[in-house]
Design a protein around this nucleic acid. Sequence first.
DNA 1: TACTCCATGTAATAGGTTACATGATTTG
DNA 2: CAAATCATGTAACCTATTACATGGAGTA
Lengths: 174, 174
Amino acid sequence: MSLRHAVLGMLADAPGSGYDLLKRFESRENNAWSATQSQLYGELGKLAQTGLIEMTVAGPRGRKEYAITEAGRHELREWLLDPVPPQPARNETLLRMYFLGEVEPAQAREYVRRQGAEAEEQAERLDALDEAIPWDDSDRSFYGRLVLEWGKRYAAMQREWADWAEHRIRANRG
Amino acid sequence: MSLRHAVLGMLADAPGSGYDLLKRFESRENNAWSATQSQLYGELGKLAQTGLIEMTVAGPRGRKEYAITEAGRHELREWLLDPVPPQPARNETLLRMYFLGEVEPAQAREYVRRQGAEAEEQAERLDALDEAIPWDDSDRSFYGRLVLEWGKRYAAMQREWADWAEHRIRANRG
DNA sequence: TACTCCATGTAATAGGTTACATGATTTG
DNA sequence: CAAATCATGTAACCTATTACATGGAGTA
């Protein structure tokens, strides 16, 4: 149940409406978690009901701004220090790799090449993001940068692996 | 809907029962996809109903062995050559990173250190797996090895990142 | 005979996606 | 005033997890 905690964490950073959080999911948080609009509003309702967050400002157009409560902050800290349960791996790109013997080597190569190209694009997006964000000395910036660095390294690893794999397919399968 | 394709792919490799596939998920495929027993049996039923797989042998203890059909193989190939839709990122470990400002620097460091240790264990598991698997010249082995290499590089990247992050926290937060 | 492993299934619940529906406010 | 953006919500459906339930076959 991590959406719950993603929301708590974001509201611990700063209060906001469902609409606000949605945008935060689309930009920064993107790297680590995602949620649909539908899901978000539902979760905000549940969190408010259980008292982990509360509505603080009612704005125009039915805007509801929420803030984390003490109970919510407590829940967030508990979750942060919990041992992370092993995550069920779900990587569709990688899953397909297993079965590429079903298609022509040229198609397999093309598939891998494309993964590499996408990783490169991702690396560029992250570099741009890095330069666009006004980093400061806050915890938010500090830990955010660690996450961004993770993303960069992940993208680089994928690109290097794709290059390697492409050559191997050419050498061994044609 | 990738479980469907994971099952098709595994049955394209070799026929098997739900029980068999479950074990394959737990070992090799582990790196890329996972499924529970419950889900698997349900999916096998649906695939059989739509004719993408068929029961070929009824064994002892109600054992039902399935094989992929021509229609199933066709579906599998189509899926393999489809462009991979962007995957919703869901990485709980990374998600927590964003919010580590909520806890003491020492606790944050410990959290990151633990991630590094787990990555190292994973690397060791993969090395052991590599040596334990009787690789041959088949497509299955060939592409399986590419996936394994991906896993090794991923584990290495995580470990290096964790080391780096740990030092950074110590230097900047205490 | 007891234990382990093989083997399949269902029900309840939770989590996630897509589509539909509606309307206010701001800006050019 | 038209268009873009802000803003929330619901319903239907699909996917995934946990727990429960049952029993056959092989082996020490």
